[in-house]
C-alpha cells in the first residue's frame, strides 16, 4: 500500500458515498445515469468474486464489501425506490455497445485464460468506459448539479491517483500491470474535458454547464 493508492481508494469511496447520499437525501436521482451505475455494479461484481476465494487483508475485504453494497444500493434507489425521478429520456447510451466488445477483448487480451482472471480483465476494461453513459447524459442535458460534478470529480481523481500508484510501484517494487495501466489511462483521459470544466467553473462557484 502506498499513499497514492490509499488516496485513490479514499477518493473512490468518497465518490460512491457522495452519490449515495445525494440520491438518498434529495430523494431524487435526477441527472444520474442509471446505466453507468449498472455498469459499475457489474464492474465490482466481476472484479470482487475473489472475495470468495482469497483473503488479502481486512482492509481489502472491507472495501470490496462496501463498494459492492453501495453500488447495488445505488442501482436499487435509481430503478426502484426513486424510480419516478429517473430521467430515462436522457439516459440513452447503449450499454451493449460497451459490454459486448469488452467481453470479447477480455477473452483475447488477458494475463491468463482462467475464469476469475478473464472476469477480472473484463472488469478492468469495463470500468475504463463505465462512466460514458453518465458523461453522455451530462452532455445531453447540457448541465449537471453541483453535487453530481463533485461525484464525477472524485471518481475521475481516483483512477488518476491509481496511475500515480502504478508509477510508484514500478519504481519501488518493479511491479506493473499493463492491462490495468492502459485501461486506467483511457479511463482518466475520458474525464479530461470534465476536469477542465470542473476546475474552471465549479471551483469558481458556477454551475457545471457544457457548451451547448
Amino acid at each position: 500500500m502506498n499513499l497514492f493508492r490509499l488516496a485513490g481508494d479514499v477518493s473512490h469511496l468518497l465518490a460512491i458515498i457522495i452519490l449515495l447520499l445525494k440520491i438518498w437525501r434529495t430523494r431524487s436521482c435526477a441527472g444520474i445515469s442509471g446505466k453507468s451505475q449498472i455498469l459499475f455494479a457489474l464492474v465490482f461484481t466481476t472484479r470482487y468474486l475473489d472475495l470468495l476465494t482469497t483473503f488479502i487483508s481486512f482492509y481489502n475485504t472491507t472495501m470490496k464489501v462496501i463498494y459492492i453494497g453501495c453500488s447495488y444500493a445505488t442501482v436499487w434507489m435509481i430503478y426502484a425506490k426513486f424510480k419516478a425521478t429517473y430521467d430515462s429520456n436522457h439516459d440513452t447510451f447503449r450499454m451493449e455497445f460497451l459490454v459486448i466488445p469488452i467481453a470479447a477483448l477480455s477473452l483475447l487480451v488477458n494475463h491468463d485464460f482462467a475464469p476469475l482472471e478473464i472476469l477480472w480483465t473484463f472488469s478492468i476494461y469495463l470500468e475504463s468506459v463505465a462512466i460514458l453513459p453518465q458523461l453522455f447524459m451530462v452532455s445531453k442535458t447540457g448541465e449537471a448539479e453541483t453535487i453530481t460534478s463533485h461525484y464525477l470529480f472524485a471518481l475521475g481523481l481516483y483512477r488518476a491517483l491509481y496511475l500515480m500508484n502504478w508509477i510508484w510501484r514500478f519504481f519501488a517494487e518493479g511491479f506493473f500491470d499493463l492491462i490495468a495501466i492502459v485501461a486506467g489511462l483511457v479511463q482518466t483521459i475520458l474525464y479530461c474535458d470534465f476536469f477542465y470544466l470542473y476546475i474552471t467553473k465549479v471551483l469558481k462557484g458556477k454551475k457545471l454547464s457544457l457548451p451547448a
Binding site: 481508494d9 488479502i56 494475463h111
Partner: peptide
Amino acid sequence: HDLTAKHDEL
C-alpha cells in the same frame, strides 16, 4: 512476477 497470483488492488 505472476500477475494473476493475486490482484491486491481494489
